[in-house]
Design a protein around this nucleic acid. Structure first.
Lengths: 220, 220
DNA sequence: CTGGCTATCTATAAACC
DNA sequence: TGGTTTATAGATAGCCA
């Protein structure tokens, strides 16, 4: 309803999106209130702000008090009817919760995989500098890597037997056994992270992530 | 926005009111979904039918629309092209990491919201039993709810001012002030959880799942 | 009462400060 | 960054089948 027709798609331009958001949110609230007034019905609207915005407070209509009143209405539903409905929804909810949590775990893992990859790249990028500096303290590098990897990997909880722990073990082994320093070690490190790098490179080129996702089995 | 300007007041004519209700309700749902799509925000709408109508089922969004929204969003990802252009893989990795972590935050939130909803349902479902059991220990219920909610909500870190924290505060307040027991309290609880409940009610009763439903893998 | 069908009224995308 | 203006896209009131 403006100068130009707008595609129904995520507005990429940051400023435009924010502006549109505020405008439409306002209009939406107005419409909801109008509907409630004109037709004498209960209605409720909740609009969360952008996830990245510090302001996590959702816009709500009507007032929280009235919102509670609407919620109260839920109570006046006929017992049996309510029970049946709720049972269904409970099932659905359980399913959804499980699914989301599973998904959560996966993404958490992927996120950390990528972090490791990124770290590997940083190491590689910084390699030349270290070469120039005659690294007799390559040992320190390994330890640093170990520490950083552990830091990254320890950020989450339940990853019992994640493949991601392998890099740690390998690095720890390297450090403990005090292997030869220098290029050899750096190569080892890169090798460890190599899989992750490859795993990502794929996704990078893949235009829509299909089911060609990298599975756990491809690690190590 | 029609042949005549309409006063913002209860429409007395029965037929007209019902027609207007249906029309505007439809438009409203569309607008909410548009806002969510265009601005990439979470939103929720609940519109109860006229109280006299037998149909106590509220119109809710999202649900069928959510699927479409997710799909649309996935398709309109111009960033993919940006990625392709990126010569430095590190940049790519950084962006992907950031994106995944952001996504992680979102899903964590949604997961917890759903858990709260589920819990609310359980409470409501158990309502009758508690009614029959002469709830002198309603106080205990409230405390239990408070505890469970805190447990659920505390599982994550970054939710500075999420609306989800409100239930906690309210419940805590109830408990602290030792309000009257019984139905009143339960009502309060239900009211508090109302948002979450409503936020889910929709998804639960999704009318026929369409073929455009996206699999979890595609959740972007 | 369910669906179209305009004529109009609103919301709002861009443009401009 | 945040209001104001304007041209248009979109929503819908009143009607009719």
């Amino acid at each position: 309803m403006g100068r130009k027709k707008v595609k129904l798609a995520w507005i990429t331009n940051d400023a435009t999106r924010r502006t549109t958001f505020e405008k439409r949110k306002k209009g939406l609230v107005k419409k909801v209130s109008e509907l409630a007034t004109l037709c004498g019905v209960e209605a409720c609207l909740v609009v969360y702000g952008p996830q990245d915005a510090a302001e996590a407070e959702p816009e709500v209509w009507p007032s929280p008090a009235e919102t509670a009143r609407v919620a109260t209405r839920f109570n006046s539903m006929p017992e049996m009817y309510r029970w049946r409905k709720m049972t269904d929804q409970e099932d659905f909810l359980r399913q959804r919760v499980a699914k989301l949590q599973d998904q959560l775990r996966r993404q958490d893992r992927e996120s950390r995989e990528l972090e490791v990859s990124l770290f590997a790249h940083e190491i590689m990028a910084g390699g030349r500098i270290l070469d120039d500096a005659d690294l007799n303290d390559a040992m320190g590098l390994v330890q640093m890597i170990d520490m950083k990897l552990k830091l990254i990997l320890s950020r989450s909880v339940s990853l019992p037997k994640s493949k991601l722990q392998k890099p740690i073990d390998l690095l720890a082994a390297d450090a403990d056994h005090d292997l030869p320093h220098g290029a050899g070690q750096r190569l080892g490190v890169l090798g460890v992270c190599g899989v992750a790098v490859r795993g990502v490179a794929n996704r990078g080129v893949a235009e829509g992530s299909r089911s060609d996702r990298v599975s756990d089995e491809e690690w190590s």
